[in-house]
Design a protein around this nucleic acid. Structure first.
Lengths: 227, 227
DNA sequence: CGGAAGATTGATCAGTTTCAAGCTCCGTGG
DNA sequence: CCACGGAGCTTGAAACTGATCAATCTTCCG
């Protein structure tokens, strides 16, 4: 499968002509990362951005004591580190591969040229950054205004909405889910337990069934609490 | 003073030609808001975005119990609600004027046309959104990985860096500062008190002197704590 | 097969919020 | 012009959420 065929499946490049994709393909570097391999560290020189072809990446911040807060978990078709391209500075977070991953790397300079020459690509990128901004503001809202049960409920509802099913399968470990929700595995485990006891969910390893969507909704919006 | 002269001072429009500014000026609506007046509510139809000419705007989220988390406090020359332009959906937060404010409003449709026609404007907007994204990720980091003293220390250092002075003047109330830091006025007051007692800062109303930059730095990075 | 990583549960502890009260300051209307 | 009322700010005591520390068990990757 050629590079251009992979690019065609990336939503950031949706609607671009074959010639445009051809041009983009010329500036791409195809890169492989092993599970656990560092892609960049916070503060590294921001030389370009990435598109995930296969695998899963963890973008995160870290505290002095080593606690991690996950910002983003891009998978196939997702992009990351675009910020470095447009602020012309260093990467503002850490990135490691959670599994064996194939990435396309776009060097900053060449990609900026592409964007300048291509209004549709610019619009796509603006839409992509705006979407990210929206998700980040939801994260800020959750961290500041919701307690852990509310954040978890909101996340489960989000997953359920994505899959269009009241059966949800976690494709990340609970350690990572905790880090994404801004808490720790112990707390997450306890709260999943409480939710089960109250009949809001049924858990079986990474499988979570949601028999009571309305109950979770009340939790997520702060209208009820977990006793 | 004509609209175009105001536009020239907005960093989002930096580097644009006089003709470009002229075109932009044609799609602007000049609007006045009184102190406390609502500009839009979360969920309202996102019809366009704003540039602040004079005054101060509060962009915030709100919990079910009425607690507020400030996302952004745009002042003269700053923009807000750009996200609504590019995601084509509703406003994702609340906006009110903190004081009598003059705003320029850009309707979504016309502004998108301007961007498509003008690569420099597109690049400026990409840079602006990226900067915002970076600030939001710092906020997420702070809320999740730092305690209130650390967040406050980081914010004071930020203000000091902006002004290039170890003397800082708060141009917002402490109620708003608390909301910006993800806490409440009582906690903020106590922590300012502790910092003063330890000689990290000296406070006099909205004036805060920082005699011990290194001490604050240690607090902000989590290397020390407030006993 | 061995060991590290993931997951769960209990007891304790620290940080922050909540509730309550009192204070100053300022704008506005009588 | 003064008084009133509300907003901003501070301090204290009590309650609570979530983190920490510790132990155990399981799983899965090398």
């Amino acid at each position: 499968m050629k590079i251009i065929d992979h690019l065609a499946g990336v939503s950031l490049f949706k609607g671009l002509s074959a010639e445009n994709l051809e041009e983009l393909a010329m500036i791409v570097t195809d890169q492989e990362f092993k599970r656990g391999q560092v892609i960049f560290n916070e503060g590294d020189d921001g030389v370009g951005f990435f598109v995930v072809i296969t695998g899963r990446i963890k973008i995160y911040k870290m505290s002095a004591e080593g606690k991690e807060q996950i910002l983003h978990l891009p998978g196939p078709g997702d992009t990351f580190a675009e910020v470095a391209v447009f602020t012309g500075s260093s990467y503002p977070a850490f990135a490691v591969a959670l599994e064996k991953s194939r990435l396309f790397f776009f060097p900053k300079k060449s990609f900026i040229d592409s964007i300048r020459a291509n209004p549709s690509l610019a619009m796509n990128m603006l839409a992509s950054l705006s979407m990210r901004l929206k998700r980040f503001s939801r994260m800020i809202e959750a961290l500041s205004l919701k307690e852990v049960p509310g954040r978890l409920a909101a996340h489960l509802l989000y997953l359920s909405e994505q899959s269009g099913d009241t059966q949800v399968v976690l494709d990340i470990t609970k350690v990572h889910l905790a880090s994404l929700l801004g808490t720790i595995p112990e707390t997450l485990s306890r709260i999943l337990g409480k939710m089960s006891k109250q009949g809001l969910i049924r858990t079986d390893g990474p499988h979570i069934a949601i028999p009571d969507l309305d109950g979770l909704d009340d939790l997520a919006s702060g209208e009820s609490r977990l006793t």
